[in-house]
Design a protein around this nucleic acid. Structure first.
Lengths: 251, 251
DNA sequence: AGCCTAATTGATCGATCGTACAGTAGCAAC
DNA sequence: GTTGCTACTGTACGATCGATCAATTAGGCT
């Protein structure tokens, strides 16, 4: 935030006036795409630093080092900026987890890494949770944010579904319906993550990891009757079974 | 919202003036306790009707049919009113579930009723979810709300823990650590509830119930290795086992 | 019937919100 | 050097927020 000394009003006829020699430009012009990304980054930084209150055009623009008006120049409204930020953050989290998972040698180990990454301090930051809450609460009334959630959650679940499917193909688990299994496991993960974020004292990250691993152990033991074999209680036409591959999410 | 016709300013010297005969009082005085409850109810109605925006002293007071200033007369600040509303709502939800559960004849049946009630339309209302999000997001900075969450969540989990414990005493399940089991099941419930509220199209309430019942089936089958016998991976001194009874939450 | 007091009112304050818009200026093309 | 495009600035506006407080009054008490 460099100090900008400048007379409030330029002399009247001074348009196209010569700038004092060797003065730095008051601002730099960048391409539309670059500026949009800068604003998205600034949005995440601002909301991380200030919580719910950081989600205002004034704080965001200050964080980005630009003027207030620039936001509405690049985004039709604030909601569109927030939606873009949501998607960027969700993708960052997902790929951070995916990177951690990549090192695992088998399905069981990759899932263990998944859980470990999910409950790492990086993701258990209360401020990150606040960001998510803000996004969720806006999803009801801002269609752009709802769409962003649907896309990213679907992608997150697909990753989980792929890992679970590998359990069966590697012979660790009997055949099961992968789609509802991924739904259940992601729900368990989210629920633990929510409660840990709200109150870190009820239980610890280690406990959360253990509970998730127990869930996987039960799956491998074939202990979930309705998941076995596929089909069953789905409202969808048919559960995606591991034999069919992980499958895109319809709609 | 009865229309109140009144001149904007009373005549100057009219203090202690006689009211026109048979005119209704402009407002009614009620005891502190009654008014507090009315304001809490109005808060929940307002936030249910208007979502996040309903949580303002203006909307709440309008909903209650009182003036703006009355809120700060009965509550030190808005946060305290909201915290009271949170606790009232959480208790209402919990007792609604508890009532449903009461009809069950055995532990398995009571849990089934618990799941059914948790994913009933009454609790899957998107507006109810918004209320919860607002509370959660305020919990970070408003100590009163955080305290309300801790109390109510602890109570909710205790109910679940009691139901799970009955599984073991009725011989449906082998001995297991009831506290972490309740944590896992409540996380599963919450996670499913969150995703269902965010996007009711990914899966249905029936699927959610089925996934929860599968979890219980796995518990009864003794398929969760770390929960068996008690003890194990707890960070707490020791997991509460079913043999020890349900036990209050320390702290 | 008159009084007292605590419940209630409502105008008001300062702050902050998102958006609009008229004007300014960076920078590439000529 | 000049021009033109458009990224960019920053004030202004109307709305709404939580909180304050002096004035008012309902309703129980004597």
């Amino acid at each position: 935030m460099a100090a900008r000394i400048r007379s409030k009003h330029q002399p009247k006829g001074a348009r196209r006036s010569v700038r004092p020699q060797s003065a730095a430009p008051r601002f730099r012009r960048v391409s539309r795409q670059v500026r949009r990304e800068e604003l998205i980054d600034a949005t995440l930084r601002s909301i991380t630093r200030l919580g719910h209150a950081g989600l205002s055009v004034r704080h965001i623009s200050a964080e980005a080092g630009v003027s207030i008006g620039l936001i509405n120049h690049h985004f039709p409204s604030k909601d569109d900026l927030v939606a873009a930020a949501y998607e960027a953050l969700a993708n960052a989290v997902r790929s951070a987890i995916a990177d951690e998972v990549a090192g695992g040698e088998n399905a069981r180990e990759r899932l263990r890494r998944f859980f470990h990454a999910s409950f790492s301090p990086r993701l258990l930051d209360r401020r990150l949770f606040d960001v998510w809450l803000v996004f969720w609460s806006m999803a009801a009334h801002a269609p752009a944010i709802r769409a962003a959630h649907d896309r990213t959650y679907s992608s997150y679940r697909a990753l989980l579904q792929e890992l679970l499917g590998a359990l069966a193909t590697e012979g660790e688990a009997p055949a099961f319906a992968a789609r509802p299994a991924a739904i259940a496991l992601s729900a368990l993960l989210d629920g633990l993550w929510v409660e840990l974020s709200l109150n870190p004292r009820t239980f610890g990250a280690k406990d959360a990891v253990a509970l998730c691993e127990d869930w996987v152990a039960a799956l491998c033991a074939g202990a979930f009757p309705r998941l076995r074999g596929g089909a069953a209680t789905a409202r969808r036409p048919r559960y995606t079974t591991v034999q069919q591959g992980r499958g895109e999410d319809p709609q």
